[in-house]
């Protein structure tokens, strides 16, 4: 239970960062923290107490395996997270070239 709670705390840390930070880079980092708390949660779901890695061994029929599906899902989600982070970084570099700043308070052409 304590692990799930810590996971949730990590998510909230990320959310707090996204909402309060003014630097584009720090917003991206906070978003990544949120992402990883979600991945951690997904990985925890598949864990079974005293479970072993899910490689079936016919010699030992009565061992408990952990659920492999969330692990596959986490791997997929990490790849997607990498793509979004890379995309955000590319946009931030472009923004820096145009505006010469990373402060979100000075990047506000769009209003209304």
């Amino acid at each position: 239970m304590i692990l799930y709670l810590l996971c949730f705390v990590l998510f909230l840390v990320g959310l707090y960062g996204v909402i309060t930070r003014r630097n584009l880079m720090k917003i991206t980092i906070s978003l990544s923290i949120m992402e990883f708390s979600t991945f951690l949660f997904l990985a925890l779901i598949g864990y079974v107490k005293n479970g072993v890695p899910p490689i079936v061994d016919p010699a030992k029929p009565d061992v408990i395996y952990v659920d492999p599906l969330p692990q596959a899902m986490v791997l997929t989600a990490i790849v997607i997270g990498l793509a979004t982070t890379a995309m955000l970084m590319a946009v931030i570099i472009r923004i820096y070239r145009k505006y010469k700043t990373l402060d979100i308070r000075e990047i506000k052409n769009l209003r209304g």
Binding site: L24, L88, V91, I92, I95, K98, I107, N109, L110
Partner: peptide, 8 residues
């Protein structure tokens, strides 16, 4: 400028 801000 606008496109980049919107996309961010």
């Amino acid at each position: 400028r606008e496109q980049l801000e919107a996309t961010f």
